[in-house]
Amino acid sequence: MYSEIHLPKGFKCAGIAAGIKPASVKDMALILSERPAASAGVFTTNQVCAAPVKVCRAHLAHGVARAIVMNSGIANACTGSEGMVAAKDMAAEAAKVISCEPQEIFVCSTGKIGPQLPLDKIIQGIGTLFESASIGNVQNTAEAMMTTDTRPKVSVAEIVIEDKPVKIVGFAKGAGMIEPNMATMLSYITTDAAVEQHALQAALKKSVDGSFNRISIDGDQSTNDTVLALANGAAENRLLDENSPEWNVFFQALEKVCFELAMMIVHDGEGADKFVTVKVTGAASNDDAELAARAVANSMLNKTAWAGTYPDWGRIMDSVGYSKAQVVEERVDIFYDDTQAVAGGCQSGVAQEDLIKVVSQSDFAINIDLHLGGGEAVVYTCNCTEEYVRINY
């Protein structure tokens, strides 16, 4: 699927089966920059966060990175001091192999909360990853990141800065625990652009807010959320910052990659077969609009109704009402795509068959107008089927 994609200049990657998961399933990945790269990161806001997140936050202060090493299958979360030692040992071993400082290594884990990492397998896997890394090993790397994902997720943007070709390649994994503020989701963005570190951090944060922080699968927030960006300057453009003439070209490409990866996550939601866009307009503020949109998107009553092709607009009204957004019931309009179900807080009189036709689609929108102001927000979500229960029980 991604076998023809190459990383930006100066990057290599690899994905292997290290024995953390059974049956020779790929479970470790490496992304390596051949030169020091400016680094940026955004992490979970969960008060319970995994050891690798704590290590990454500390290493981000260094501002420069050489590699990301990750494992899937075990989250290394809620593992106490032993888990912290394991996360630091992952970084130290990768640094030794690459010949850099441990602070230049980011470590990530995803999978089951609680078990300790099999450090012997991790250490051996790091050496194997380094030996097999190449600029074109994108498919294996993306596969090694997966847990309950049904397919790997990669996005590419190619732009021109100062007549020099610049490339951005992003990876992501995630299918459940996707709300709010990212979720059981890892994403790695690589670019050969030369970007000032603080500008890269600000750009990544803004891009995440418009993409990974706009999605919801099941309303659960993870302990391991991590988005990392590395910019190694191999394209040899002049150092970019927010004041550079071509900054917007770079930033829009970064936004595109993050948004595409976020949409791939929603389309691959655990057990989901419908992609639903929830848009709220006319709110008293943008914050109110987001409260209302998230309430609708996270409601299991709504998600199961969509799974059953049951257009129960009453559940949507209920969600908006308890969202803590300012709501005047008599002003609320609700549309399924362009078909109006609610007018002024009451049933519009539209035929039920017309609404069923909309929710029978694999991709549709719930559009809500509160008629109270100029606030608006969008959340991208999915339905919830029986398969979600089977995956998670």
Rank of each mutant, 00 (worst) to 15 (best):
K303M: 12
G349A: 13
A94G: 02
M84W: 15
V55C: 04
V138P: 12
V195H: 11
C78L: 02
F43V: 03
A50N: 04
Y322A: 01
V389Q: 11
V48K: 10
A343D: 05
F130P: 09
S222R: 04
C384K: 12
Y322N: 03
G125P: 01
A87F: 01
D120K: 12
R214C: 14
T79K: 05
A17L: 08
K206C: 00
E353L: 07
N137C: 15
K164Q: 15
V342T: 00
V69I: 06
S207Q: 07
D163G: 09
R35T: 15
E158Q: 11
V359I: 03
K54V: 13
M182S: 09
V154I: 06
T44P: 09
G374I: 12
S348W: 09
I356E: 10
V156G: 05
T381R: 08
N302P: 13
R238T: 15
T110Q: 01
T223N: 03
T44I: 07
H59Q: 04
R35G: 10
V55R: 10
C56H: 04
A23M: 13
V379Q: 00
M317F: 09
L228M: 01
I105M: 07
S207G: 04
I217T: 13
E260P: 02
Y322S: 01
L372R: 02
G176H: 06
R151C: 05
A18Q: 02
P165Y: 01
T191L: 01
I135L: 05
K324F: 10
C78G: 01
K12W: 01
I178N: 11
G136P: 02
Q347C: 14
V350I: 15
A231D: 07
G219P: 10
V55P: 02
V169Q: 05
T277Q: 14
G19Q: 03
Q197V: 15
I5M: 05
N71A: 00
V332R: 05
A202V: 13
M182K: 08
V320M: 06
A272E: 06
T184I: 03
T304S: 04
K173R: 01
G375F: 03
A202N: 15
V320F: 03
A14H: 14
I189E: 04
E329N: 12
P36L: 15
V55G: 04
V327W: 07
E376F: 06
F171D: 05
G176F: 03
A365F: 00
G219I: 08
F259K: 14
N76R: 00
G176I: 01
C78V: 06
E236W: 11
G219K: 09
D333I: 11
V389F: 14
A77N: 05
F11V: 14
E196P: 03
Y2F: 15
P102N: 06
C78R: 07
G282W: 02
T226R: 03
A51H: 04
W306D: 04
S33H: 00
S72K: 02
Q139V: 07
K167V: 09
Y336E: 12
Y336L: 14
A87E: 05
D337G: 06
A351M: 11
